[in-house]
Simulated scan of single mutants.
Amino acid sequence: MNITKHDRFTPIRTALAACAISALACLPGIASAQQKLTFAIPGIPPIFGGTIALVAEQQGFFKKHGVDVAVRAFETGAAASRAVATGEIAVAFSPTPLVVSQVSNSDVKLIGIYGMEHPDWLIGSTDPNATCASMKGAAVGVDSVGGARSIALKTMLMGSCKMKIEDVQEVALSSNGPAAMAAGQLKFGVLHIDDIPFIESQTKKPVKMVVKQLDSRPVDHYMMLVANKDKLAQNRDAYVRIIAALIDAQRFMRDPANAAKVAEAAKPTGRSADLAEKALKAYLAMEFWPDNTDGLGRKNIETLTQVMKKVGNIKQDKAPAPYERIADPSVWRDARALVKP
């Protein structure tokens, strides 16, 4: 068979043409970044802390950085982290106490790639005379038994009230505890700071802050954006781009001129525009969303890990996982390089 020079190069030209038509398919890193990825935020309705992901989606920051991301609310951060661990979804905001316990106890394939170091948890009450002592035997609203609010309750009871979790009755309500308190169905609940103005707007009475977690443990870690270790290794570029979008979203949220747009993005949380703007100011004041850092402070995470061992969330026969197994700050560093100074 005679093969001409033209014939020999035809397959090459065809392949190059295919690449030109579909360049993404010929560049694995970029192609993988274009896959539909799910970003889970905890709570139905979502907690206000997840607003940063809603802003990144609504303001087009994910698209700007070349990732196709859908933000989806999960009932709890625990449910979201399980979906990440099984590979069902790409990333999720999940409570750090839960993540370090899961990794230490079972070597679950989760790793933090971005974080929020400052917890806003508190135990609040509609009873103006409430104290630690008056909580004994009382019903306390949490998300789920063993979930983020439940773990926060346990640590606040032990740290500030010298009580055990068994001294109260946990009532699992997802993120609807504040609504139950506003309706007079509960006197106590584990709350976020944005829950307080909501309850007060409904009851027309002040909420008593019985315990604040930051008072009982100033060095702490609240929440991580977790990825599946294997998926991160396979498609790292996409995760870097997700973090780049969050960096842009945080900058957007810090600009007072954008407060109304942030409040609009926060609608899924159930907050009115007025309450959302008040919550935004409070969260920015405490640097809830990290400003030009990865939010994965070694001291914060290692301190929390030791607390989880002390309170029994890390099993007696298990050693706390090292920082390097829990967090990977390099993803944020690469994402920061994609974002303009």
Rank of each mutant, 00 (worst) to 15 (best):
A257R: 13
Y114E: 09
N129H: 14
K261N: 11
M209V: 14
A40F: 01
P45Q: 07
A180R: 12
A335Q: 10
G87C: 09
I196M: 04
I47C: 00
T293P: 07
L16I: 14
D248L: 11
A259M: 07
A25N: 11
E166P: 01
A327T: 04
K162R: 14
K310E: 05
W121Y: 15
P322H: 06
Y283T: 03
T203D: 08
S216G: 10
N292M: 09
L191C: 11
L275D: 09
P341T: 09
R8C: 05
A83M: 12
M116C: 12
A265G: 05
L275C: 06
P206S: 10
G159M: 07
E277G: 01
L157Q: 06
K164A: 15
K340P: 05
M1V: 08
N258S: 07
H118W: 03
I113G: 04
D317K: 11
W289K: 02
M158H: 12
R149S: 14
A276T: 02
D68G: 01
D317M: 08
T76R: 02
A259H: 11
V210C: 06
K231M: 13
N313R: 12
V211G: 02
S22Q: 13
E287H: 14
E277M: 15
K63V: 04
C26N: 05
V210W: 05
L338M: 15
L153C: 08
L54S: 01
T293S: 15
V331C: 09
M116G: 04
E264Y: 07
A139V: 03
P45H: 03
V140D: 12
K63I: 00
V55M: 10
L246V: 09
P329E: 13
Q250A: 15
L296N: 01
V91A: 10
A285N: 14
R8Y: 13
Q169A: 10
L157S: 04
I111A: 05
G66A: 03
I41P: 00
A92C: 08
K187D: 12
W289Q: 06
G66N: 06
E75K: 13
A17I: 13
